[in-house]
């Protein structure tokens, strides 16, 4: 698939997700207490100081944006300093890798923040003008997504400059697969090692999270939806891992038989 087609596909899906989320969120905001309780576990009478929350929400979003720009400029500075020297390459690579990670964290943090803000809006829909609040949250979310995508794409370009054999893009739907195909032997080993380590840590964290949420849900009589979602994620992750391992083992045996 060429770059333009990939970009077009990305924008179509991205646009659809934003519009569908907007429509669903808009109607969800006007639904009764029952839906609110099922969705969030809180009842409609939860007391929240909106002005304080709104200020915190905006401040945290701005902080995420500052971190995003800071990481980008740091990466750019590292590459601008680049000389045809091995030590400089190593330093620049480290800085760019770190910048990408920081930017990703800021990006996800901003999205989670906006989701929380939307949820609070849904829960306390009677207490403020929901349309205005909802659209403010929606606009900030879309802005955060656009800024995140643009900065990330620029960071990817910087990284492609450092590792020309890896041509990465934010418009890629399966970046890990692309990276796996393009990587050479040492890069592949690094990729597999980090992927396995990520899986191990994530599954442990999710399992712990599942237990904690289950206990909180039982003690505080909250909705079980969060515990169910986290539980499903744990089951899904472990199933994918087991099936993939089984398939790889099986394929290996078939190859040996053919030989």
């Amino acid at each position: 698939m060429n770059a333009n087609k990939q970009k077009k596909k990305f924008f179509i899906i991205f646009g659809t997700v934003v519009i569908v989320s907007a429509v669903l969120g808009f109607f969800a905001g006007f639904l009764g207490d029952n839906i609110k309780t099922v969705l969030t576990g809180f009842d409609g009478s939860t007391s929240v100081n909106y002005l304080v929350l709104f200020a915190i929400f905006i401040a945290l979003n701005i902080a995420a944006l500052i971190v995003t720009f800071y990481s980008y400029f740091k990466a750019k500075k590292a590459v601008n300093m680049l000389k045809n020297d091995d030590a400089y390459f190593d330093t620049a690579e480290k800085t760019v890798d770190l910048s990408i990670t920081v930017e990703q964290i800021a990006f996800v943090f901003s999205c989670v923040l906006n989701m929380v803000a939307t949820t609070i809006n849904i829960v306390n829909v009677e207490k403020v003008d929901p349309i205005i609040y909802y659209f403010v949250v929606l606009i900030v979310t879309v802005l955060a997504l656009i800024v995140g995508c643009v900065i990330m794409q620029r960071l990817m370009k910087i990284q492609n400059q450092l590792t020309p054999n890896l041509n990465m893009s934010v418009f890629d739907f399966d970046p890990m697969k692309t990276q796996e195909v393009q990587a050479d032997e040492a890069q592949k080993e690094l990729l597999y090692k980090s992927a396995y380590k990520s899986f191990r840590i994530t599954s442990q964290v999710f399992m712990a999270l599942f237990i904690i949420i289950s206990v909180i849900t039982a003690v505080m009589e909250l909705s079980i939806i969060t515990a169910v979602v986290v539980g499903c994620m744990v089951i899904f992750m472990c199933t994918v891992f087991v099936i993939t391992s089984y398939k790889m083992q099986h394929l290996q045996k078939d190859k040996n038989k053919k030989k």
Partner: peptide, 10 residues
Amino acid sequence: GVSRQTISQI
């Protein structure tokens, strides 16, 4: 036929 990263890691 490999990347600079590979040489550096070796």
